[in-house]
Structure formats: C-alpha cells, structure tokens
C-alpha cells in the first residue's frame, strides 16, 4: 500500500508537522482527521505541503499521534481525491472589478490580452484550500495554470482591502489593507471578515468560490 505521507516531524512539545506530496493530499488528510478527531487534537493548520496538528500533551503524545496520522494517511484513497470537501456552504460568488494595478503586467508576463486574463480568471470554480497570512485571507486553488505567477519582486507596503490577487498558483483576496507581494488583478467590495458574524470569514476552508466580472 502506498501512502501520501512523506514524513512526520516534531514541532515542539505539543504539535507535529505532517508532510505530504501535494496540496490535494494535505486537504484529504485534514478532512479525514476532521471527520473523526483523534483524542487530544486541538487544531489543524493546512498549508501547501504540510498539515500542522497541535495537541494537548496531557491527553496524547508525539509517538501515539504520529502513528494515528500515519494510519489515517495510509487509508486515504489513491490520488488524494478532489480538493473540494463537503461543507455546509454554497458557492460564494465574488463580484470583481478587474482594474488591478498589475493587470497589464500580468497580461504581458503571460503573453495574453487583458481580456483573456480576465476570462481565464473568471472561468474556474475555485476552492478555499486553507487560510493564513491574516484573518480571513483564504488561499484558493483552481487558478488557471496560465495565471500561475510568482510574487512581485518588490512587495507593496500597502495592498488595499478587497484586492483580488494571484501568486504561487493561488488566488487570494485581501480582507483588509496590508503589505503584500501578490499580483493585483482587481478588487471587490465583499466584506470577507466580520468578527460579529459566525463564522467571521466568508472564505472558509473547503468552500467553493467563483469570481464574476463587474464594473
């Protein structure tokens, strides 16, 4: 039997870091651990190739939890399955004004017209893979391979709130103004983070998202 697990590393006295082949496997392992949480597990933090599992050291331990994680990983279906998880959420439609300051650069970098960049960005059904960087910032997978671009060589000191951007194969939306190095394609007025609502984030892991052009 093959396992997508590439290794399990200790991350201190109360966490371990599971390494996987790719993001699809990370999301599949996270889903498996969420469906049936091993005893003592506190939080699961997914990222591009890793899943951080924090735990209560009074309840479980590094060796025991490593074994459980390895078993769950080995039991995953081959190919990791689709990135989309079952969630209680419908597809979020985000209206975007494609007027970002990097739109022309992106067209030039990809050798396409601005029109084609917009069409390629609005076509896919995206999935929120994981969150991080700042509250409510979701890393969305599903971006057209043509738009898989690196970060800008010089990050901006202030990216405006609502900026819709691509970098490293992901699409993201800045919930509020912050420094950032992603390529800015456009902007939206959708409030992505509201602490008075449950959940506070609209871009929760597993949710599907579409971007719709608006003026």
């Amino acid at each position: 039997m093959t396992t997508p697990l590439r290794g399990v590393r200790r991350a201190g006295s109360a966490a371990l870091l599971a390494e996987l082949a790719d993001l699809a496997d990370v999301l599949a392992l996270r889903a498996a651990l969420e469906r049936e949480r091993p005893e003592g597990v506190r939080e699961l933090v997914a990222a591009a190739r890793t899943l951080l599992v924090t735990y209560d050291p009074a309840v479980t331990g590094q060796d025991r939890l490593s074994r459980t994680v390895a078993e769950r990983a080995a039991a995953l279906p081959e190919q990791g399955g689709p990135a989309t998880q079952e969630t209680d959420y419908d597809t979020l439609v985000v209206p975007v004004r494609y007027d970002g300051p990097d739109l022309a650069d992106v067209a030039e970098l990809t050798g396409r017209t601005v029109r084609e960049v917009i069409d390629r960005h609005t076509a896919p059904l995206y999935t929120v893979a994981f969150a991080g960087f700042m509250p409510g910032f979701g890393y969305l997978v599903g971006t057209d391979p043509v738009l898989h671009l690196p970060r800008r060589s010089e990050p901006r000191t202030a990216v405006p709130a609502g900026s819709v951007a691509v970098a490293g194969g992901f699409t993201g939306v800045y919930p509020r103004s912050s420094p950032g190095g992603w390529q800015l394609l456009g902007s939206t007025d959708v409030p992505l983070w509201d602490e008075d609502r449950t959940p506070p984030a609209l871009l929760v892991p597993g949710r599907t998202v579409r971007f719709e052009e608006t003026t």
């Binding site: 933090v45 990222a47 951080l52 924090t54 991080g132």
Partner: peptide
C-alpha cells in the same frame, strides 16, 4: 512553502538570526 507555525517556534529568516514566536504569532 509556507507552513503552520506554533507559539514558541524559532523561525530563522534569511539573515540567519532567529525570531522566537510569542502569543500573537502568525498562523503560517
């Protein structure tokens, strides 16, 4: 590739000098 961070992590940026993450640390 960015990965999950815990409180107490000693992250080493390119300048080689560790940063000890405390309670308001970034998640990744």
């Amino acid at each position: 590739p960015a990965e999950g961070m815990v409180r107490g992590a000693l992250q080493v940026p390119p300048n080689g000098l560790p940063v000890l993450f405390l309670t308001d640390h970034p998640v990744t």
